[in-house]
Computed example of a mutant assay.
Amino acid sequence: MQRRLLIGAGLGALAAPMVAKAQQSFTFRLHSFSSPTALDHTLHLDPWAARIQQQSQGRIRIESYPAMQLGGQPRDLPQQLEDGVVDIIWTVPGFTPGRFMGTEGLEMPFMNTGLSATESVAAYEFCTKNLADTEYRGIKIISIHSTDRALVHTSRKPIRVQDDFKGLRLRVAGRFIGEAVTALGATPVGIPLGGVYEATARNQVDGFLINWAITHPFRLYEVAKYHSEPKGGLFQGMLLTLMSLRSYNRLPAELKAVVDANSGAALSKQLGEVWDTQTQQAIDATRAAGNEIIEIPDAEKARWRNAVAPAYEAWIAEMNRRGRNGRALFDDMMSVTAAHGRT
């Protein structure tokens, strides 16, 4: 509880000036797939909603509905936002394949900086620059931040070189990381996060690609004994907090200012810093379980990077198909992430 309060207070650095209390007030519904006890709520969504209410002098109230309490599946969240069923959502691109295709490009291997604080700023910059008029049309972006660094976790066979991928079935969370897994020689499998532990324990998959932080609350170190990590990680997942522009535009200027002060690149960076605080404790729990953490040498990392090039080409082709200049977008993604420390 003390950690939660301290981090929530840290995020308060984004505070806007207090606004005078007035008669008109607004209630918005926030829908999330995540558990109410997960850090997505305890260290992000709940403190964020509390700040909005406090800084608006109670004129903005955000009702939080975690764990899909308003119905539907996680894949339905963007449609619920567009249909006006809810006003704010917290989601990830892979849950709604194709809906946030441009953003999914940031989840491809070796597009990452290794730290959520820096990757989050790069992601926010890339998306607002290149995708605001397409996949974020009609949306007020509250934040786009990333997980901490992700790697390959396996249950029985350690991965030390690329050839070790052959014959493995590995859980992935999105299309393009799946394309990369195929290029490396394994078979990608789509499984919801809540099913990863059981699927691995039952040998339905041989492992999974996932970030460090999430392994701790889901105790995934109990079913995966080997953890193979190139320097800086393999990739980082994207996390989206989005508000309907229609709902945002209902607010008078002084209340829009409250939302604006708790949105954007600064918030994305601070949320990234929260994720980065979770990495080491997950590593410590993994080591305490007696597991092996395998550091992939730079020369082998270079082999993996070359091998996953088909995933990049698949993303470029998909963006071209959607009427965008896929190569130009890819080059800009490389430029933006490099500027923020891509490894």
Rank of each mutant, 00 (worst) to 15 (best):
A9Y: 01
G10Q: 03
A16D: 02
V19N: 14
Q23M: 05
S32A: 10
S35D: 15
T42E: 06
L43V: 02
L45F: 00
A49G: 06
Q53I: 01
Q54Y: 00
S56G: 09
G58K: 11
E63Q: 13
Y65V: 13
M68N: 14
Q69C: 03
Q69T: 13
V85W: 01
V86H: 12
V86C: 14
D87G: 07
T91V: 13
V92K: 06
V92H: 04
V92L: 02
R99Y: 07
F100W: 11
P109I: 05
N112M: 09
T113D: 07
E119W: 00
T128I: 05
A132K: 14
Y136G: 14
I139Y: 02
K140G: 03
R149N: 05
I159S: 10
Q162C: 06
K166G: 03
K166D: 06
K166L: 02
R175M: 10
V181Y: 01
T182G: 10
L184C: 05
A186I: 09
I191K: 02
G194K: 09
A199W: 03
T200P: 13
Q204T: 10
N211A: 12
T215G: 10
L220P: 13
E222K: 11
H227G: 06
G232D: 08
T241Q: 07
L242T: 06
S244G: 08
R246T: 12
S247V: 04
N249M: 07
R250L: 08
K256C: 04
V259D: 01
A261M: 02
N262E: 04
N262G: 00
Q270E: 03
V274N: 02
D276V: 05
Q280A: 08
Q281E: 12
A282W: 01
G290T: 07
N291S: 07
E295V: 10
N306T: 11
A307N: 04
V308G: 04
V308L: 05
A314R: 14
W315Y: 08
E318D: 15
N320F: 03
R327W: 00
L329N: 05
M334I: 14
S335T: 14
T337P: 04
G341I: 05
T343C: 04
